[in-house]
Design a protein around this nucleic acid. Structure first.
Lengths: 348, 348
DNA sequence: CTGAAAGCGCTTACAG
DNA sequence: CTGAAAGCGCTTACAG
């Protein structure tokens, strides 16, 4: 309606292969009758340009449907306003709340958050991180399966923040593992259990190693007997297959690396006629979706995953801005959720 | 070891703000003693360059840790080798298998898949799609909450493929809704149910509208009575809150929009002392994680989500390559998974 | 306040 | 087979 000569229509970018080419600042500049640099300023540096000019530029940009090309901007500035979150398995319910927290934190910043997953493989994780590296401003590694030195090398090029994993000299957000373990062990001890098992997760997992060493230490301190059981994978199936070994060992309670394994264990108990918590008490970690849907429902240690996701993104944004903080975040508070899968040790 | 004069070390890109600058093809070119264009060809057009040169370029590139900058490549070529998958809620278990299928399909292509989520909001979805639009080669919209015309407009700029949603003239991959509904209705009819309820999902959801109209048609054809119940949200909580209305209506079986609602319904039944399947049979849709963990476990119509994810990515890759196929994909085969939440209608 | 120019890291006709 | 040059769409000192 501001275009009596129909100039705008003429300047509309051509089509290529049936697909419309997105308009550039040059299209806008031509339509307004200013230099492209003025368009750039009008759109990105409010106040650096004459008000009237700015208005006209904005109006025309809107009219033409102009959208900035983030890749073109990234070249001179080195900034993409995009953060990547790399998750070993995006379909693991453990990370739901972490994702929710990260989304909440990113919303206020105007940045975009993209997810990628590494399918539980360190190799895939490294390749994906490498590809994403130059396309984003920073990387959030969740439960990374990479080696410390691989992560450090990544961090040398782009800001990196870790969640559920610690690496020396790198910012990381983790739950308070010692607290969580104390809650689980204390609960079982209070119920009279003296012989407890730990159903382990992947040997390469930092969280698995940390939990185990904490459990081991706690058992020693309390004078309880502790046994570790290994399983194929940290999944429902992995938990199911571990039952025979656990029963044979004579422990009266078992703490699992994660809830997925605990749910598998519960299922196997049901199939095998092992009463829970009568014969065996089961405590998981994480409080995932589904933990309260089973029969019996699962007692588990909940990590503040939403808070972890939120804190990790805040920290990453700070890193990107060059605010290097050296203070180590303490582990975040965990909560024991007591449900039906734990009970007093059975007197025989 | 091939660098007796230590030249390479000298040419190593400088540091900026404590963060190493990634080496460029110019760094490689200088180190090898060729033009940058030769480096580009050696790395990307095998055969277009003298073998010996290519080898040297590759060796030095490796040595310097050169990685192509995808954003810089994207500018002249318009290609990023990245596909985006936009999901309304990345933490909805429904999409697990779809994600798995998409990952499988992308692996072979050498492209990168990034995820973004729109938090169930059409507005967020549009904003995110807009930002991602110029950073990726194509967009996979899963269960999009956008209007048809918004989607069409997106598709005018970048290749778009839809999953679990259809829009006229756009490639889309969906399950065979009619088949799924026939399986659910047939199962309930066989069990003697004559009065069936449908617990609806979001009114804006294409899948909800499609399922309802199919259920309605199927009920008419079979001479069954059918009632629709609305719920707040398509979640466990939404399902829980709907129970009183459903009981009051006198239906003996209910089909829910998704498994989340079915699980909520099951939980409410347990709390309210409504026997399942004695008093009420429940059939869900999707067969999500957890559907077989509850008591009673859930009878549900499984969509071939993995196949849908795989087909959608293949189709998107084809679109990006400019292979516009006009053939409409038929809906993919669904499967009824009969578990414990359905049974014969109770004789009173 | 605004224009002209250089540059971000690549690719690709165009010469030779 | 390889170099020199132009260009992709932006941003940002530098002049004026």
């Amino acid at each position: 309606m501001d275009d009596p000569q129909g100039k705008l229509a003429e300047e509309t970018p051509a089509r290529a292969g049936g697909r419309r080419l997105a308009p550039t600042i040059y299209d806008v500049a031509r339509a307004v009758g200013v230099n492209a640099s003025t368009v750039s300023r009008a759109l990105n540096k409010p106040g650096r340009v004459n008000r009237a000019t700015e208005q006209r530029v904005r109006a025309v940009a809107l009219e033409l449907g102009y959208r900035i090309n983030p890749m073109a901007r990234a070249l001179p500035t080195g900034r993409t306003d995009t953060l990547a979150i790399l998750i070993s398995d995006i379909t693991n319910p453990v990370y739901f709340d972490l994702v929710r927290g990260a989304e909440r934190a990113i919303a206020a910043t105007g940045q975009t958050l993209v997810y990628a997953e590494s399918q539980e493989s360190g190799e895939v994780e490294l390749a994906t991180a490498g590809r994403l590296q130059s396309a984003v401003d920073g990387l959030l590694l969740v439960a990374s399966r990479l080696r410390d030195d691989e992560i450090s090398r990544l961090a040398a090029t782009k800001p990196v923040v870790l969640a559920n994993r610690a690496v020396p000299d790198l910012p990381s957000i983790t739950p308070d593992v010692t607290m969580g373990v104390a809650q689980a062990m204390g609960h079982l001890a209070d119920l009279g259990h003296r012989s407890i098992g730990y159903l382990a997760g992947p040997a390469v997992s930092w969280m698995n190693r940390t939990r185990w060493s904490s459990i081991f230490g706690s058992a020693r301190a309390r004078g309880l007997s502790i046994a570790m059981f290994t399983a194929g994978r940290p999944t429902i199936e992995g938990g199911e297959h571990a039952l025979p070994k656990i029963i044979a060992s004579g422990v009266t309670a078992v703490i699992t690396y994660n809830d997925l394994m605990a749910l598998g264990l519960l299922r196997a108990c049901r199939t095998a006629g092992v009463t829970v918590p009568g014969r065996l008490s089961v405590v998981g970690f994480d409080d995932i979706f589904g933990a309260d849907l089973t029969t019996p429902s699962l007692t588990t240690v909940r990590s503040p995953l939403a808070a972890i996701g939120e804190a990790a993104v805040h920290r990453l944004v700070a890193e990107v801005r060059g605010e290097h903080r050296v203070d180590d975040m303490p582990g975040l508070t965990t909560t024991l959720i007591v449900r039906e899968s734990t009970g007093p040790v059975e007197r025989i």
